[in-house]
Amino acid sequence: MSTTTQALLTLDGVHTHIGAYHILHGVDLVVPKGQLTMLLGRNGAGKTTTLRTVMGLWKVAQGRVQFGGKSIANLPTPQIADLGIAYVPETMGIFADLTVKENMLLAARGARRAQDMDEARLKWIFRLFPAVEKFWNHPAGKLSGGQKQMLAVSRAIVEPRELLIIDEPSKGLAPAIINNMIDAFAELKASGVTILLVEQNIHFAQRLGDTVAVMDNGRVVHAGGMAEFSADTQLQQRLLGLAL
């Protein structure tokens, strides 16, 4: 990260235990403001645990987590969200029995009725994800996997956020939907949102990533620019067991 780029989120020597298991072993991670940081690694490397630790869903046993220069380690999750951080888990967290509109209204905490939601912001979301508008009054449980993912991201951005944390947004999606998602994230980043993304789809990572951090066995074992990482097939092979 260059000296001119400000870090929005930093993890410094973070350890996390889940029950009897020691999952994170001193994670160091820097997410530069206004950029898209890819968190890569094999299954079980600790990526999801890192995201959940940032959000306070797992407690920091040791180390520091700072957002905008302030400590957020072990704050309650609602307080962390109130700072301007949105989290889209791999499970998406959609309320299947509620309509798309009702799911969005729950996320727009400043609105009590659909009419109270920011109309200009909704139009922007509808342009990013037309399916959200198309199925506005449909039960969310009836949506396809790709449409649910679009709804999950739409809920996360229905209010302005400084940081968007998303776990495997392209998992199980068709290539056309993935390309739509890539375009939407590129526009989100251009609007000034900082994004931290866990992703297995290497095409997705290459197209979007500014910086990359690779995890293995509960630690970050490589961090740097995405372009340099994409060009170094030997490094990819060593860290991920594959080449981009």
Rank of each mutant, 00 (worst) to 15 (best):
F204S: 00
D210M: 05
G145H: 11
M104A: 11
T48L: 10
G218V: 01
T233L: 14
P139W: 01
K70A: 12
L163W: 07
S154I: 10
L128I: 10
E133H: 11
N43T: 12
R64P: 00
T49E: 05
L57T: 06
L242S: 13
L163N: 09
L164Y: 07
A7I: 06
Q149K: 14
Q66A: 14
V193K: 00
Q79R: 13
K142L: 14
A107E: 05
L128R: 07
I18R: 12
A7M: 08
T49G: 09
L40P: 03
D28N: 15
G46A: 12
Q147E: 15
R109Q: 13
A61S: 15
V54E: 02
V88E: 04
A156Q: 07
G19L: 10
Q147M: 11
L188K: 00
V14L: 05
N103D: 10
L197Q: 00
A223D: 05
A231G: 11
S191F: 01
A176Y: 09
P130Y: 03
L105H: 08
D118N: 14
S170T: 14
V214W: 03
Q149A: 13
V60C: 05
H22Q: 14
T48P: 06
L242I: 13
N201Q: 06
I125L: 06
N137Q: 14
Q234V: 11
E133Q: 14
E159D: 10
D118H: 05
A152Q: 05
E90D: 13
H15L: 04
W124E: 13
H15K: 06
S71V: 10
R113P: 02
T37Y: 04
K33E: 15
R109I: 13
A213F: 01
A186D: 10
V30T: 15
G84D: 01
P139M: 06
A107D: 04
Q206Y: 00
G26I: 09
H222Q: 08
P169Q: 11
A45Y: 03
P139G: 04
E102H: 08
Q115C: 10
Q234F: 03
T5F: 01
D82I: 00
G209D: 04
A223Q: 15
I80W: 00
G56R: 07
T77Q: 13
I178Q: 01
L143Y: 04
L235Q: 13
K148C: 06
L164D: 04
D118I: 01
P169H: 12
L51V: 02
L240G: 04
V27P: 07
I165K: 06
V60W: 00
A186W: 03
Q6K: 15
F129N: 02
S191E: 13
L40A: 07
